[in-house]
Simulated assay, not measured.
Amino acid sequence: MTGTMNAVEITEAGGPDVLKPVTRPVPEPRHGEVVIKVAWAGVNRPDALQRAGMYAPPPTASDLPGLEASGEVVTVGAGVSDLKAGDKVCALLPGGGYAEYVATPAAHCLPVPEGMGLKEAACLPETF
């Protein structure tokens, strides 16, 4: 894993054209968090509202859109004992899902249900 990743950020309030590709540092997990290599990100109403300038993420959340995603745990922070690198998960995120990697509380991660792909699992935490 390199130190940077591709992501999509909101450059200003507006339509889909305000979403722009950027390079950002790969997040580091804080205590109780994991970093997920994102396979799929859900797209939902709060993301559209954030893009339109009608929803501000909480001060401690990522400024990147994306409240749910699925993928593989790649890094585990201190205090996390129920997940490990390689686990396939879907997760409710504090923003940041529109990126190659995202940090989220381990408690917000769910195992991908047996027989379900990562694509379908990406919409479980928020949309479903």
Score class of each variant (00 low, 15 high):
Tyr101Ile: 00
Val18Gln: 11
Thr127Met: 08
Leu83Ser: 05
Tyr101His: 14
Gly117Met: 02
Lys119Phe: 13
Arg24Ile: 00
Pro111Asn: 01
Asn6Met: 02
Glu28Thr: 13
Ala52Ser: 15
Glu12Met: 04
Val35Ser: 04
Lys88Thr: 00
Ile36Cys: 10
Tyr101Ala: 01
Val34Met: 04
Gly77Ala: 04
Val43Gln: 13
Gly96Pro: 10
Asp47Ile: 00
Lys20Arg: 14
Thr60Trp: 15
Cys123Ser: 15
Arg51Phe: 09
Gly79Pro: 04
Pro105Glu: 05
Arg30Lys: 14
Tyr101Thr: 00
Val8Gln: 05
Gly115Lys: 07
Leu67His: 06
Gly15Cys: 04
Val34Pro: 02
Lys20Ala: 14
Thr127Phe: 14
Asp47Gly: 02
Lys119Arg: 15
Glu9Arg: 15
Leu124Pro: 07
Ala106Thr: 00
Arg51Gln: 10
Glu33Val: 01
Val26Ala: 05
Ala91Tyr: 08
Val43Phe: 14
Val112Glu: 13
Pro113His: 08
Met1Gln: 11
Leu64Gln: 09
Pro59Asn: 06
Ala107Asp: 13
Val38Asp: 09
Pro58Glu: 07
Glu68Leu: 06
Met5Phe: 06
Ala103Asp: 11
Val43Thr: 08
Ala78Leu: 11
Lys20Pro: 00
Leu93Ala: 03
Thr60Ile: 02
Gln50His: 09
Gly86Glu: 09
Thr4Ile: 05
Thr75Arg: 15
Thr75Ala: 15
Gly77Pro: 07
Thr127His: 10
Ala78Gln: 14
Gly32Val: 07
Gly77Thr: 03
Ala39Arg: 06
Val8Phe: 12
Thr60Gly: 01
Met54Ser: 10
Ala48Tyr: 07
Val80Asn: 11
Met54Thr: 00
Gly79Val: 02
Lys20Asn: 01
Ala48Thr: 12
Leu118His: 07
Gly71Ile: 02
Val74Ser: 07
Leu118Met: 13
Lys119His: 13
Ala121Ile: 02
Ala78Met: 07
His31Glu: 13
Val112Arg: 08
Ser81Cys: 01
Ala56Arg: 14
Val73His: 05
Pro25Trp: 09
Ser70Asp: 11
Gly71Lys: 09
Val73Asn: 03
Pro111Tyr: 04
Asn44Thr: 01
Lys88Ile: 00
Asp82Asn: 12
Val8Tyr: 11
Leu118Asn: 06
Pro58Leu: 13
Lys84Gln: 14
Pro105Asp: 08
Gly53Phe: 06
Met1Thr: 07
Cys123Gly: 10
Glu120Asn: 11
Gly86Ala: 05
Ser81Asp: 15
Val22Met: 04
Cys90Gly: 01
Val76Asn: 09
Gly97Arg: 03
Asp47Ser: 03
Lys84Ile: 00
Pro65Val: 04
Val112Phe: 13
Val102Glu: 03
Tyr98Gly: 00
Val22Phe: 06
Ser70Ile: 03
Pro59Ile: 01
Trp40Phe: 15
Val26Tyr: 05
Met116Trp: 13
Ala48Glu: 07
Gln50Asp: 06
Pro25Lys: 12
Asn6Glu: 12
Ala69Gly: 08
